[in-house]
Amino acid sequence: MKPNVNLETDRDANDVIDRILEAEGELIPSSGFLAATMERVRDEAAIPKPIPFPWLRALPGIVLAVAVLGWCGFELARVVLANARENSFAQVHLTAATGRALEPAEWVVLALAASMLSWFFARRLAGRSGLL
């Protein structure tokens, strides 16, 4: 709300604000500014470009990792489903046996998942920083 606004006075005040803010003196950059800026640019240019991720070479490894993960998942699901169908005696017996066998596999799966996650976040961070 603008009570008692004097349009004439307000316009004049705007004119004064215009005069003050427009009539800013020109700032001359210091003599070393150009050289300092170009030095930074040259430093930046001298940094070798980041080596692109060797997707082609990594492809067999990635395929293998995905296959192992898939196989582990499939085996885990198969055993769990098979156990669920067995009677309680066999279930207890089988669960103990398969549990021991699958214990390292679970850790491998977990480690692979953690590695994938950390790789994914590292790439995202590097991408944001302009490193990739």
Binding site: P29, T37, R40
Partner: peptide, 9 residues
């Protein structure tokens, strides 16, 4: 000047 330099970079 620092900010302008950063802008150029």
């Amino acid at each position: 000047e620092e900010m302008a330099q950063e802008a150029f970079l």
